[in-house]
Design a protein around this nucleic acid. Sequence first.
DNA 1: CTTGACCTTCCAGTAACTGGAAGCCTTATG
DNA 2: CATAAGGCTTCCAGTTACTGGAAGGTCAAG
Lengths: 129, 129
Amino acid sequence: MNISQAAKTTMLPAKTIRYYEEIGLIAPERGANGYRSFSDTHIHQLTFLARARALGFSVEDCRSLLALWEDRDRASGDVRKIAQEHLTEIETKIADLSAMRDTLSHLVQTCAGDDRPDCPILNTLSSSD
Amino acid sequence: MNISQAAKTTMLPAKTIRYYEEIGLIAPERGANGYRSFSDTHIHQLTFLARARALGFSVEDCRSLLALWEDRDRASGDVRKIAQEHLTEIETKIADLSAMRDTLSHLVQTCAGDDRPDCPILNTLSSSD
DNA sequence: CTTGACCTTCCAGTAACTGGAAGCCTTATG
DNA sequence: CATAAGGCTTCCAGTTACTGGAAGGTCAAG
């Protein structure tokens, strides 16, 4: 299977697939013409990567998860540890963003948003109240 | 005021302040020795930038906000528009992260996390259920 | 005069791609 | 058989917002 077909199948851009090869996440074969050739296994790996990335795992986390996935004897605890740490990161981000949202949403509501210059948003950013 | 004092006052790393000058957000004077010299106005601008960045505004948003802040005749509507768009972005991010959190937290709870190889997390990442 | 703390600039690296150029390879058509 | 379209290749540069570090000038204290 050529790269554009692999891209279609895995829903990953071809550019991203080439990048994943470049950083050693996958290792497709090459045909006589130099074209990459993707087997079912490669497609499976790419699908795995796409799913893990969609869950927000970093590429390096993905590398570890992929290695664990391919290790029939891995301990599920190793996987869980990575996922748990990632979950904690996500929860921290949500908390940070929620605080931003609360502040901003209050400011946006307070600001008249008209042609007059007085603006509580700028006032807040400039003074220390 | 030298850069390290400005850094202390604004809680921004000196590196970041130099970077802000490089990209034209601020324009401190220079002493005869080539050292940057920060006036109260510069400190005010830096404080403004620090607050806006802490609220998650991009540096380019900050550039616009700073310009509006310095324009006595600006319309508050211009500011509100930037803030509103940023707020929408934040809300989208929160929604995305919350979906990730729900999925991951379910997976982490389901995974035994012990020495056995069976792992629902990897199963989910590899199969399409 | 020397030491150490500051300051300067410049270069490189980070995360994870993305866009684009230059140039083969393949396939269909006239 | 020539050619044109489209797919493939590699390589280089750019993105965001810094951050680390090297090489070297400046300043204040002892």
